[in-house]
Design a protein around this nucleic acid. Structure first.
Lengths: 149, 149
DNA sequence: GCGGTATCTGCATCGATTGCAGATTCGCAC
DNA sequence: GTGCGAATCTGCAATCGATGCAGATACCGC
C-alpha cells in the first residue's frame, strides 16, 4: 500500500491512483492527473458532466469523452465507485471504504454516512442466489431542501 | 379498500387500479385495462419496453408512448413502484408491500425478497437530513447465471 | 531522439424517455 | 341513442446520458 492521505483509509491520493494506472501499463497524461486531483477528497459525488466542467476550468479544451474514459478506467481498476441509484446521470465516489449514502430526492445531492449495519444477510437467507454485495440507500431531503418547503 | 386479490396485500387487481384511475377523473381505455392485466401478479419487474412487447401481442398497434404514459400515471397514483437501481432502463414493480430486491448483475433479473430488516435508522442518526425511505438492494448472481460460470 | 502504442479529441450513434400535434375516443348530458 | 368537450392515443421529432469510431497527438521504454 502507498502512503495514506489525510482523508483516511479508503480514499486514494492522486499519487496512488497514478501508481495504480502505471501498474496496469496505462499511461499518465495531464488529463488523467487533473482528474485524479479533482476526485481526491471530493465528497460531492460528482457526475461525469460536473467533473468535465470543473476540469475545463483548469484545462480548457479537455474532452468530455476523455472524462468518461478515465472514470470508466478508474472504476475498472476498482479505484472508484460508480453510483447508479440516483436518477439522471451516473455519479462517482472516490471513497472506497464501506459506507452508505443519503440521497436528497429534491436536489439530487448525495452524502456519505457510516452506519453499523447489523450482521448483513447470510448466503442461505435467499435460495438460489449468490449475494456479492448489499447496497443501502436512504432517500429523503437534505437540510437545505427541507427548509425550502 | 376494494377486494383483495390472491396475490396478497400490496398487489392491486386490475379492477382496483381501474377504480383508482376513475377516482382521479382519469379515463379507462382498452390500452390501460390491458396494462393493468399485464401488471397484475407480474413478479418479473418488467421494463416499459418489455411491457410494450407483451402488450403488442394482445393489442397490435399499441404505442410505446402510451405504455410509458400509463406507467407514469400509475407511479404518480402510488399504484406502482418504479425501480431505478438497475442500470439500463427503469423497471416497474406492482408489489406495493414493503420488501427488498435481489439484482442479478449478470442478466439483470430482479427478484423480490421479504426480509426483516432490524429497526431501521432513526431520524437522529443523521444530522440535517430527513429520511423518508430506506432502500436495500442485494447484488449478485441468480442461480442460472451462477451455474453458467 | 525515435518509434510504437496508448490516448485525446470531435463527431456520429445509440438507447431510454419525453414533448408535441393532430386524429380518435371516452364518458357525461340531453 | 346522439352529441360534445376534454382526455387519450399514436407517430414522430427531440433530448439526454453515454459510447463507438477514426484520425491526430503525446507518453515512455529503448
Amino acid at each position: 500500500m502507498g502512503a495514506r492521505s489525510a482523508y483516511g483509509a479508503g480514499v486514494h491520493s492522486p499519487t496512488e491512483l497514478a501508481e495504480a494506472f502505471r501498474a496496469r501499463g496505462l499511461k499518465l497524461t495531464p488529463q488523467r492527473h487533473l482528474l485524479f486531483r479533482l476526485l481526491h477528497g471530493n465528497t460531492t459525488h460528482p457526475s461525469a458532466e460536473a467533473l468535465f466542467l470543473a476540469a475545463s476550468e483548469q484545462m480548457p479544451g479537455i474532452s468530455l469523452r476523455t472524462v468518461y474514459q478515465t472514470l470508466n478506467d478508474l472504476v475498472t481498476l476498482g479505484e472508484l465507485q460508480q453510483i447508479d441509484f440516483v436518477p439522471g446521470s451516473a455519479r462517482f465516489d472516490p471513497n472506497l471504504s464501506d459506507h452508505q449514502h443519503l440521497v436528497c430526492d429534491a436536489c439530487g445531492a448525495v452524502r456519505d454516512v457510516h452506519l453499523p449495519l447489523g450482521p448483513g444477510v447470510s448466503g442461505e437467507a435467499v435460495a438460489d442466489f449468490h449475494i456479492d454485495s448489499t447496497t443501502v440507500v436512504f432517500h429523503g431531503r437534505c437540510g437545505t431542501c427541507a427548509a425550502a418547503d
